[in-house]
Simulated scan of single mutants.
Amino acid sequence: MFTGIITAIGQIKSAQTKGDGLHLIIEVPSGYLDDVALGDSIAIQGACMTATQFDGNTFALDISRESLNKTVGLDKVGPVNLEKALRLNDRLGGHLVSGHVDGVGEVAHFAPVAQDSYGSWLLRIEAPKELAPFLAYKGSIVVNGVSLTVNKTEESANACIVDINLIPHTLQSTTLGNLKQGDAVNLEVDLIARYVARMLETQAK
């Protein structure tokens, strides 16, 4: 489990073919791996992965074709959001996050909020239509591993439009500040919403 609070920005240094998937080498800030052991889970751009090897300030992981087909941003070099797995005595600063990507959305708009001297930005995402039942005003959503609050939802014929306000700290402490219109992003809906929807679906049968 995770919280959606990014603990570091890493860098995919290499992505080499391994079977039908990839073998990734990720560089992290000095000391970041001091409390991480082989087999531990680390969320990368919101996707839970297993650390399989360490070498100084880098760790390796193997990612399957199934995971590559369901995510974005894990198949080439570049910066990535990182979060270590939640411990039972940790603070839950964001919300309960499984690290299982539910769908890939597209950035429809990303720009500073007009008349906002604080420096916040409006992020508008077109989420897959099937995620609409799990997205609600003031509810939670994970975007590339970051726990965020939904400020507005609107359904179109083919998508669910989600508006999110990003404060300067989030822009500086995650990779979200690098987004641009048209970019694809990993999305995970609220875990509790998913179970509530399943319970209601079962009762309706």
Rank of each mutant, 00 (worst) to 15 (best):
R91A: 13
N69L: 09
D75N: 15
S67D: 07
F54Y: 14
T71N: 14
F110K: 04
E155K: 03
E188P: 05
A8I: 10
G56Q: 13
L88Q: 03
V150S: 00
L74K: 12
A51S: 11
N178R: 14
P168Q: 06
I6D: 02
L171E: 09
A114P: 06
E66W: 05
L92G: 06
V107G: 06
F59Y: 15
T7N: 08
K76L: 03
L191M: 15
R124F: 01
L176W: 12
G4A: 08
L123M: 08
G39A: 07
T153V: 15
A85V: 06
G182R: 15
G4I: 11
G145W: 10
L131F: 01
K76P: 01
Q45I: 10
M49S: 11
Y137I: 02
V72S: 08
E130S: 07
W121P: 00
S98E: 09
A51P: 06
G119V: 08
L74P: 07
H169R: 13
D55V: 14
G177W: 11
V28Y: 09
L24I: 08
C160E: 09
I125M: 01
P29L: 10
V104K: 00
R91P: 02
T58N: 12
D62G: 13
G99T: 08
D34P: 02
S67I: 12
A132D: 07
G19Q: 07
Y195H: 14
K129E: 02
G21H: 05
E83T: 04
A37H: 13
I9H: 04
N186W: 10
Q203N: 11
M49F: 07
D116A: 03
V143L: 03
T58E: 12
S41R: 09
V162A: 03
A159V: 01
N57I: 04
M1Y: 14
V146E: 05
K84P: 07
T7C: 03
I192E: 06
E106H: 04
L166E: 01
N81P: 12
G182F: 13
H169D: 12
I26A: 01
T50N: 09
M49T: 15
E130P: 00
Q11T: 08
N178H: 11
G10L: 09
T202W: 11
E126N: 14
T174E: 09
V77E: 15
Q53Y: 15
E126C: 04
L187W: 06
Q11D: 07
L24A: 03
M199L: 14
T202V: 13
A111P: 06
E201A: 10
K180W: 11
N57M: 04
S98I: 05
A204I: 06
P79C: 05
